[in-house]
Write a protein that binds this DNA or RNA. Structure first.
Lengths: 222, 222
DNA sequence: GTAGTTAGTGTTCATATTACACTTAGTATA
DNA sequence: TATACTAAGTGTAATATGAACACTAACTAC
C-alpha cells in the first residue's frame, strides 16, 4: 500500500462472524476449532483477515460462504473490537458481524466437509479464543434488542411456517414465554404475513395454516 | 508487527469522529479543513490514524482532545466503513465514533487555536472529503433513534437547564414539535431530573426552575 | 369412537399516550 | 404605578395500547 500518509502504523484487520441459528429449542452459535497459534485447538468464531481487495462486507460474506457454505442470508455489522491485548501476538482489530441463518438452510449445505465446526448454545459456550466470548455476548444483546423493535426474526425462519413456530422462535430468542392470542393478533396486525393457503399436516392434531412473509426485508415495527 | 499470520495484507486504519453540539437552534457537526492530499482544502470529519499503541476508543478520545479540546464527553462507536474506494490513495478503513458536547463546554475550550475548524448544520453540510457525508448521515440517524429510547440527549445539555431548554433540545434533534405539558410530565416521571432550587431570571418573564440530572449515566427508558 | 394434541379465536381491564387552554410571575415602559 | 408583554407552570378527558385469560375445532392414533 501507499505509505505516504503521516502517522500510519501497522495494524492488522480481521473480520469475525457470530453466526446464529435456532435449532433444538436453543439459540446456537457457530464455532470453529483453531488450527494454529495463538489459541491452537481452542474454539473460536469463524473469521479471517481482511484482504486489501475486498470490502468489509465482502470479507464477511466470504467467511460465511467458506465456513457455513451459505449465501443470501441476513448479515449485519455488529461492532469493531480493538483493545490492545485482544491478540497476544500482534496488534489486530476485528470488525465483527452477525448473521442469521434458518436451520433448514444449513442441513442441506455443503458445510459438512468442515469437520472442526460445532454449534454451541449461546448460553453455554465453551472457552473461546481471543475476546470472542465478549463478541458473542454483544451479538446476543443486539439480536434481542432488534427482535423487540423489528422483524429481524424473519431471517431465522424457513420459507413457510406455522404461527406457533414463529412464536417459539421469539420465545427462544427473547428467553420469555408469550401469550398465544396476543402474539397472533400482533403478528397479523403488522400486515407482513401472508397465508399460503397450504396447511401442514404433521402430527396427530389439527393441521395449522402455513404462512410466509410478504417481503423479506427487515423493517422497523410501530 | 508480527507477520506470521497467514493471509495478512496491509490495510490502514483510521478513526473519524462525528462531533455533535446544539447551538443556534440547530444540530451542528464539527468539521476540519484538510491540509493535505487527498481532498486538500476540503472540509472533513476530524480523525487520525490508529496508532499501534492505543485502543480504538483511546484513539477517538485523543482526536477529540486534539481537535475539540474536550475530555469527559459522551463518545460511542458508530460504525466501521470499509469500502474499497473510500480513499483514492490507499486502502483505509475507518472506525467512526460519534460524540456529544454541550455548546457551553466548547466556547470555553482552547480549541480556538485550531483555525481551520467550523461547525456546520447537520442538514446543510458543505462538500466533504471521502465518504464523510455518509458517515454524518448515519450518525444523525443513530442519534435520533437513541434520543427516542434513551436519555442520551442529556449529554448535550449544560449542567443546569430549564425544562423548556431540554424540550427545545429534543425538538431540534428529532426535528419535531412537542407538547409542553406532556413533555414535562414525561420527563419528570422518569425520576432522573432534580430541581436545583435555583431559578433563572433571564428576560422579562416568569423565572424558570433550573433542573439538573441526578446521574450522568445514559440509561434506556421504559 | 374415544383420547390425545395442537390450532384457532374475543373480550375485559389496566395502563400509557395524546390533545388541549388558562393562570402565574416576572420585566419593561407609558 | 398600572398595563402590556413574555415565558413558566399546571390537569383532565378521550383514545390507543398492552396484558390477562379459557374454550372450541380439527385432526391422528389406538
Amino acid at each position: 500500500m501507499n505509505t505516504n500518509y503521516p502517522g500510519y502504523e501497522q495494524v492488522a484487520v480481521t473480520v469475525d462472524l457470530v453466526v446464529f441459528t435456532v435449532n433444538d429449542d436453543a439459540l446456537n452459535v457457530m464455532l470453529v476449532k483453531r488450527a494454529e497459534e495463538p489459541f491452537a485447538d481452542r474454539w473460536s468464531l469463524p473469521g479471517g483477515f481482511l484482504r486489501s481487495s475486498e470490502s468489509l462486507e465482502d470479507a464477511a460474506l466470504r467467511v460465511l460462504k467458506e465456513k457455513a457454505g451459505v449465501e443470501d442470508v441476513y448479515v449485519e455489522q455488529l461492532y469493531t473490537f480493538g483493545d490492545l491485548a485482544r491478540d497476544p501476538r500482534a496488534r489486530v482489530i476485528t470488525v465483527a458481524y452477525f448473521a442469521l441463518i434458518p436451520w433448514k438452510e444449513l442441513v442441506s449445505s455443503p458445510s459438512d466437509k468442515v469437520t472442526d465446526l460445532m454449534w454451541a448454545s449461546a448460553t453455554r459456550l465453551p472457552k473461546l479464543a481471543f475476546d470472542h466470548r465478549e463478541i458473542v455476548a454483544y451479538a446476543v444483546q443486539r439480536l434481542r434488542a432488534k427482535a423487540g423493535y423489528s422483524n429481524i426474526v424473519y431471517a431465522l425462519m424457513p420459507r413457510q411456517f406455522r404461527l406457533s413456530e414463529l412464536q417459539r422462535m421469539y420465545e427462544i430468542i427473547m428467553n420469555d414465554k408469550l401469550d398465544k392470542r396476543n402474539f397472533r393478533k400482533r403478528m397479523l396486525a403488522t400486515g407482513l404475513l401472508q397465508e399460503t393457503g397450504r396447511k401442514d399436516v404433521a402430527g396427530a392434531h389439527r393441521p395449522a395454516m402455513l404462512y410466509k412473509f410478504k417481503k423479506m426485508e427487515i423493517a422497523f415495527l410501530d
